[in-house]
Amino acid sequence: MSTGLTLWRRVPPWVLDTALVALAVLDAWLNLFDEDTTSFMRACAAMGCVALFLRRRFPLAVFVLTLPMLLFMDVAVAPFAALYTLAAHTRHRPLLAGCALLNAAASTLTWPLSDTFSGDRTWTLIQFAYTLATAFAPVLIGQLVQARQDVARQLVEVEEAREHERALHAQTVLARERAQLAREMHDVVSHQVSLIAVQAGALQVAAKDPQARDGARAIRTLSVNTLDELRHMVTLLRASGGKETELTPQPTLADLQQLIANSGIQTTLTGELPPHISTTAQRTIYRTAQEALTNVRKHAPGARAHIHLWHDAQHFGVTVTNTAPTRPSVPLPSAHHGLIGLKERAELLYGTLAAEPTPQGGFKVDLRAPSRPA
């Protein structure tokens, strides 16, 4: 089954359209042997068949062009193909219902129109109900195909979101381990080395033996150099959050534009932050925007996002809002680790993080931090 679908998708569209037009022409030709057939009827049939070449670009117009031929002949290929294409390309169900009614009406009416109700009107009503039910068949098939495409697209988005979430979780765990190691090195090792340096300095001053003073000076120098190396290592550990095999700096505000460009979401960026903002604050602003855009991609497919940087005399922050999704989303399992991590980052700045839905059906993430922590 899957192999057959794969081979079918590999067929070029123009080949399918040509075969469909040929089948529609054959269907119309079988109805043109009547001696009452006029040139106008042939022109309507030709117009309805040839229009199928444009059904992918102008599905509604092509469907309308196939209606006249239904008044003169009992054909099915061209109108049904046009109706199916329209159903596969639009989500306007009232429009599809109206087109199905038009198709059934055109199939029921006869030319000249005065002959339509000259016979048994009950039979005419029965024929209309039958053709209407038949007309809804391509509509339902087209809607099913459209739903299948939506599900396939959502499955791809789900897999991408899960992969992204796994990567973020791995980075978060790695960053926590490195932060813990950095705290241990800063609080324990650096403290012990500092004591060694202090004791060596005191020994250097108090010692009367030149060799003892030289030894104390060497110990003090090595301790100071070791402290410098430890501070450098602690800085790298705290700033690293990338792959396990490399120590790269965390992103800052300068990387926001690249984040927006790589997000795959229609996003606008406005506002600015106060000058000389700390690196930690820049990193928190960036991670807030990153997590908000990730949630938009996961839970609001097709939505637009807006990132607003702001500051006043006492506070600064970022507000990320998104519109309502334009496509249905698939519920994903989530432990909300991303928002929890953002709240922890906000608390390090003595700030707050609020995340809540908007009245318009979207979502808003708002980070607020004091310019000068108390």
Rank of each mutant, 00 (worst) to 15 (best):
H164P: 02
Q154E: 15
F136G: 05
G142S: 03
D115W: 03
T124L: 07
V145A: 12
R176S: 14
V151S: 12
A137N: 04
L140M: 12
R183E: 14
A170P: 03
V151L: 14
Q154F: 02
Y130R: 09
R178F: 04
A161E: 05
L174I: 09
F117P: 01
F136L: 14
L168D: 10
Y130T: 08
W123K: 14
A182G: 08
H169T: 11
I126R: 03
L144C: 06
P138W: 00
A175T: 12
R178T: 07
D150K: 05
Q154Y: 03
R153Q: 10
W111Q: 00
Q180L: 07
L168Y: 06
A135I: 01
T108L: 02
R162D: 10
T172V: 05
A152Q: 12
A133K: 03
E177F: 14
Q127R: 13
L174Q: 14
S118Y: 07
L140F: 06
A179I: 03
L144T: 12
Q127H: 05
E159R: 13
I141W: 06
A133Y: 02
F117G: 03
A161R: 02
L132F: 11
T131V: 02
L144V: 08
A129F: 13
A161W: 07
Q154L: 09
A135E: 05
A133V: 06
E160N: 13
A152Y: 06
Q171V: 01
L140D: 03
T134I: 14
H169W: 11
M185Y: 09
T124H: 04
P112K: 02
R176E: 15
R178Y: 13
A167V: 05
E165L: 12
L144R: 15
D115R: 09
R166L: 15
A152E: 15
L125P: 03
R162C: 08
R176K: 11
L174W: 11
R183T: 13
E157W: 10
A170I: 09
Y130Q: 09
F128A: 07
E159V: 10
V158F: 12
L174D: 06
V158W: 11
A161C: 12
A129W: 06
F117R: 06
L125K: 02
F117M: 12
T172E: 08
L168P: 00
E163H: 09
D120N: 15
A129Q: 04
Q154A: 15
A182E: 04
W111R: 02
E165S: 11
S118P: 00
Q180D: 10
F128L: 08
A161H: 09
W123P: 01
V156K: 11
T124D: 01
P112F: 04
Q146K: 10
W123D: 12
E177N: 15
L144Y: 07
W123S: 09
A137T: 14
A133H: 00
I126L: 13
A161Q: 11
S107Y: 03
Y130G: 06
E159S: 14
T122I: 09
A147K: 05
F128G: 00
S107G: 11
H186A: 15
E184D: 15
R148N: 08
T124K: 06
